[in-house]
Simulated assay, not measured.
Amino acid sequence: MYAAARSLLFKLDAERAHELTLETFRHFPKLATWPFAHGAVNDPVELLGLRFANRVGLAAGLDKNGECLDAWGRLGFGFVEVGTVTPRAQPGNPKPRMFRLPEHTAIINRLGFNNRGVDYLLERVAGSDYRGVLGINIGKNFDTPIERAAEDYLVCLRKVWRAASYVTVNISSPNTKNLRELQSEARLRALLAQLKGEGDRLAQMHGKRTPLLVKIAPDVDDEQLDAIARVARETGIDGLIATNTTITRDAVAGHALAGETGGLSGAPLKPLADRTLAALRKRVGADFVLIGVGGITCAQDACDKRTAGADLVQIYSGFIYRGPALVRDCADALRRLPPSR
Rank of each mutant, 00 (worst) to 15 (best):
A273W: 03
T246W: 05
Q183D: 02
A217I: 00
A14D: 01
I171A: 05
L280V: 11
G132R: 08
T248S: 14
N141A: 05
A193F: 04
E223N: 12
G117S: 13
K196Y: 00
L188I: 12
N175H: 11
F52C: 03
S265K: 12
M98L: 10
G197S: 11
L290I: 12
L191H: 02
Q183V: 09
R116C: 01
L58M: 06
G66H: 00
S265G: 14
L192R: 01
G294V: 08
A242S: 00
A325Q: 13
R335N: 10
F36W: 11
K30R: 12
D222F: 13
A251D: 01
A308E: 07
G135D: 04
P44V: 09
R275A: 07
H27V: 14
L240D: 06
L272P: 03
A331E: 01
V80F: 07
G117E: 08
E147M: 07
L47Y: 07
H206T: 15
T248D: 09
E46W: 01
A308T: 03
L272N: 05
P174M: 09
E81C: 07
M1W: 06
A53L: 11
C156Y: 04
I237L: 11
T246C: 04
C68L: 08
M205I: 14
Q224R: 14
A150E: 10
G285P: 01
R322N: 06
E67C: 03
F288A: 11
T33K: 10
T307I: 06
N175T: 10
D221I: 10
P44A: 11
L12R: 12
R6E: 08
P102D: 08
V133F: 02
G309A: 11
A164M: 09
Y153L: 14
G323L: 06
L50H: 10
V214R: 00
K282V: 00
R51S: 12
N54P: 02
T144D: 04
S184I: 08
L312Q: 03
D304A: 13
P29N: 10
R16P: 02
E81I: 07
H27C: 10
L334V: 09
L290N: 08
Y316Q: 00
A106M: 04
T243K: 08
P339H: 15
G292Q: 02
R116I: 09
P87S: 11
P324N: 10
A150T: 12
Q300P: 02
L12N: 04
L272A: 05
T24P: 04
E103R: 15
A279M: 09
S173Y: 05
C330D: 09
I241M: 14
P87H: 00
K95Q: 13
V252R: 02
R209D: 00
V252Q: 03
R16I: 13
Q194H: 09
